[in-house]
Measured scan of single mutants.
Amino acid sequence: MSIQHFRVALIPFFAAFCLPVFAHPETLVKVKDAEDQLGARVGYIELDLNSGKILESFRPEERFPMMSTFKVLLCGAVLSRVDAGQEQLGRRIHYSQNDLVEYSPVTEKHLTDGMTVRELCSAAITMSDNTAANLLLTTIGGPKELTAFLHNMGDHVTRLDRWEPELNEAIPNDERDTTMPAAMATTLRKLLTGELLTLASRQQLIDWMEADKVAGPLLRSALPAGWFIADKSGAGERGSRGIIAALGPDGKPSRIVVIYTTGSQATMDERNRQIAEIGASLIKHW
């Protein structure tokens, strides 16, 4: 067993022997301040990774656009098919120029040779490549099948209805392509620590998230040296922004954090800054 596999296998073990965790309302004060600064709703939840206990939450059962955070769930569904012998990570998928959609920095470079399922998941999570996500959605049967996968996990809230990039439209009061912070946090925890996926697939999923290259201005910008984070960000229309993450000190994750916002007129930089400040408060009061 590799060191990384050992780390993920012992996530519940280490967490069980940690000192009790206590909620700190100071972080919620910052979440509410972010709402004021952005002029928009902000949803927040913080779960203990081992027990699933909610440590703090704000608007945990209000719907927010998922945006690209759905790509972690998508690759979880792909990995479940791999575990069941219905898919192979090494299978190569070929596609054409007509398949390319807006923001496809990886797939646009491989029109000639195609990409493997493993490479597509890596591109979808680490670079948020939209064509990679659409190609992977095709392998599982489309958005409705991802929703069905989530329902089978016990998540009857999260739903995907459309493809990239239309799913980022974020129309107010439109339930399409949305989740709730509580539902997303619980589902992410199941994917990373539950028995739904094999140990190898859980490790692969967290490795992809740990290698995320496009979430630097968010929670990662607030992390002290030595902290662990595996995350996936999302951005959408109407001032929408979000991030889902597993993080913790001492090089291992111990909490799940989900943050979503929508309806702001603020710039992307300002949305990023507010999420980073929430992260800084979380870490300060850990």
Rank of each mutant, 00 (worst) to 15 (best):
Q4K: 12
Q4T: 09
H5C: 09
R7N: 10
R7E: 08
I11T: 07
I11K: 05
P12R: 05
F13P: 07
F13T: 12
F14S: 08
F14M: 11
F14A: 10
F14N: 02
A15M: 15
A16L: 15
F17A: 10
F17E: 04
F17K: 07
P20C: 05
V21N: 06
V21R: 06
H24D: 13
P25G: 08
D33P: 01
A34E: 03
A34R: 02
Q37C: 11
L38S: 08
L38I: 10
R41E: 07
V42N: 04
I45Q: 05
I45D: 02
I45S: 06
I45V: 15
E46I: 07
E46D: 07
L47V: 14
L47W: 03
L47S: 06
L47R: 03
D48C: 07
D48T: 05
L49M: 15
N50F: 12
S51L: 05
G52P: 04
K53M: 13
K53L: 13
I54N: 06
S57T: 11
F58W: 14
R59D: 02
E62N: 08
R63K: 10
R63D: 03
M66V: 14
M66K: 00
M67L: 09
S68R: 00
S68N: 00
F70H: 07
V72G: 03
C75E: 01
G76F: 04
V78S: 03
L79H: 01
L79M: 11
S80R: 11
S80H: 14
S80G: 11
V82N: 06
V82L: 06
D83C: 04
A84D: 11
Q86F: 10
E87T: 08
E87F: 08
E87Y: 05
Q88A: 14
L89A: 07
H94C: 08
Y95M: 07
Q97W: 11
Q97L: 14
Q97P: 14
Y103Q: 04
S104C: 07
T107N: 03
T107D: 01
H110Q: 09
L111R: 08
D113S: 11
M115T: 05
M115Q: 07
T116M: 06
V117H: 03
R118D: 12
E119K: 06
E119T: 06
E119S: 08
L120G: 02
C121M: 08
S122H: 12
M127H: 08
M127L: 11
M127T: 13
S128D: 00
S128W: 00
D129H: 00
D129A: 00
N130Y: 05
T131G: 15
T131S: 12
T131K: 02
A133E: 00
A133N: 02
N134D: 05
L136S: 02
L136Y: 00
L137F: 09
I140D: 02
G142T: 07
L146R: 00
T147L: 07
A148R: 15
A148P: 07
L150K: 00
L150P: 01
N152H: 15
N152R: 15
H156E: 12
V157L: 10
R159C: 06
D161P: 01
D161E: 08
E164Y: 05
P165L: 08
P165K: 07
E166A: 11
L167Q: 04
L167H: 03
L167E: 03
L167A: 08
I171S: 14
I171M: 15
I171K: 14
P172R: 11
N173L: 15
D174G: 05
E175L: 14
D177A: 02
T179M: 01
M180F: 11
P181R: 00
P181F: 00
A182W: 13
A182D: 10
M184A: 07
M184K: 01
M184T: 03
A185C: 07
R189L: 10
R189Y: 15
K190I: 09
L191F: 11
L191V: 09
G194C: 11
E195V: 08
T198D: 10
T198I: 06
L199C: 15
A200F: 09
S201T: 08
S201V: 04
Q203K: 14
L205R: 00
W208C: 03
W208N: 03
V214F: 05
L218K: 02
L219N: 03
R220M: 03
P224N: 06
A225I: 13
A225K: 15
A225T: 14
W227V: 02
I229A: 05
A230H: 01
A230G: 12
D231K: 04
D231F: 03
D231V: 04
K232T: 01
S233L: 02
A235C: 03
A235K: 02
R238S: 11
S240T: 07
R241K: 06
R241D: 02
R241W: 02
G242V: 01
I243T: 04
I244K: 00
I244L: 09
A245F: 03
A246W: 06
L247K: 00
G248W: 02
G248P: 00
P249S: 08
G251L: 09
K252S: 13
S254R: 11
R255F: 02
R255G: 02
R255C: 03
I256E: 02
I256R: 00
V257L: 09
V257E: 02
Y260L: 11
T262H: 14
T262N: 10
G263M: 07
Q265D: 12
Q265N: 09
A266N: 11
T267W: 05
T267R: 11
E270R: 11
E270L: 10
R273E: 14
R273V: 10
E277K: 10
E277T: 13
I278M: 09
G279E: 02
S281K: 14
L282N: 03
I283V: 12
I283E: 03
K284Y: 14
H285K: 09
H285A: 09
